[in-house]
Design a protein around this nucleic acid. Sequence first.
RNA 1: GCCCCCAUCGUCUAGUGGCCUAGGACACCACCCUUUCAAGGUGGCGGCACGGGUUCGAAUCCCGUUGGGGGUGCCA
Length: 469
Amino acid sequence: MTGPRFRFAPSPTGFFHVGGARTALWNWALAHSQGGTFVLRVEDTDAERNRPEWTHGIIDALAWIGIHADDPHFEGPYFQSEYADQHVAAAEQLFAEGHAYYCDMTGADIEARNKAEGTQGYQGWSRDRGLGPGPGHALRFRVPSGVTLVHDLVRGDVEFDNALIEDFVLLRGNGSPMFLLANVVDDAAMRITHVVRAEEHLPNTPKQQMIWEALGHEPPVWAHVSVLVNEARKKLSKRRDKVALEMYRDEGYLSAAMVNYLMTLGWAPKGDVEIQPWDRMQTDFRLEDVNHSSAFFDLKKLAAFNGEYIRALTPRQFLDACRPWLFAPDAPFPADRFEESVFLAMAPVIQPRCVTLADAAAVVDFLFLADPVIDADAWAKATATSESVGVLRDTLDAYELLAHWSAEPLKAVLEAVAVAHDLKPGKAQAPIRVAITGRTVGPPLFESLEQLGRHETLRRLRAAMATLG
RNA sequence: GCCCCCAUCGUCUAGUGGCCUAGGACACCACCCUUUCAAGGUGGCGGCACGGGUUCGAAUCCCGUUGGGGGUGCCA
């Protein structure tokens, strides 16, 4: 695949951050719309932290949001720690050409010197000492004087005064490469043309750009996108916030809804409609249109998107999407009592009642339970009126004789019973509903009775009446 | 401390000098529909942070203030 090359570089922290997912999606859209490549590089210079299981998690999570490793636009994954030799070689080149120098000062040394001189940070103290490599000698970049101009596709030109950038470390005292260096070397080696990443990296960009230039390469196109924040407008963090993409998948969010929602954080499709198919967003997405300010990750809006996507599913798709929760160990009914045909028939009335796929099982649990779990308070309340017992008995009698067991006649019968007891047609269903479903709220009653069947409906009504004594 | 970024309804956004009496979505409220709960329909509430410029005209351009965020590691 020729064309521009976009790199996506998560760190293997054991989960996939929703903010990272958005950046991945944007890189993915760009790679496709520009006929380029999405390069996945799992970044950590420490091989110890490149845990295979974490990496698999990243690849699974990417696949969930539609970024598949077998897509022709996908390249990788690469593992940064495997390229340590190249990182060190680049550092040595920088030293040989005078762009870097060795320094033997420890953190304590620097602190002491600053205290003595009333300065702050590292003041390039070893610049002209002519030190060579050796144990405890860190390699520092010799930051040139002048200014570094970073051209950023979303922010425009940002100017940094080099005098304010200290000579940063390239190689640690033990010889291992630092992230900043490794990052640039990898990007250059992989011929990355566009670096689209979170805004938090912007202040370090001049340093990286200087490394690119010192290494003799043309820097890539930079694009720093804003971060996602929580209610306190702080960057989403693992400790405080629910940031793992996998968590949303496990809780029953549809990937299409998540993808659509993530795309609208910091960017909006043309027109006034936010819910858009991926193909459309993929071709319309432009970095130049991305917002400059941080965005709040709003669970309520995500839920609304998810509800919309759930309602748009066909019954079959809905059933298939719900399976993991329907057959989970903690499902509200035994798996062997589940009936696909019943669920499929009920799907159109279940879907509008679900925020997540996980909600479905609880909406229809009574259909697949040997006996409904009767809520005592609900039952007491539903049978508190003087008419309720009569309604129950008359309905039972009428249902025993009903010719066609389907929603319409079931409804007509109950309405007639209600009127006979001086109630408004729609007001008699509470005791029936509780007797059948165990609760006062739930899916439409008559469709439920139709699916439950005459035998079971009558059995439940009799059982419930028996408790009244 | 120093550096950088940011600033439109509560939230996500549209807006690139006149189409703006600032549009849409989520949330919230009311009403309608109705068989409970939803969903759906209709309507409502609600915003250009502040102060100076520039201009015939500013949400839009410039400067400042304030507020928020991020960076500043021999972390990534």
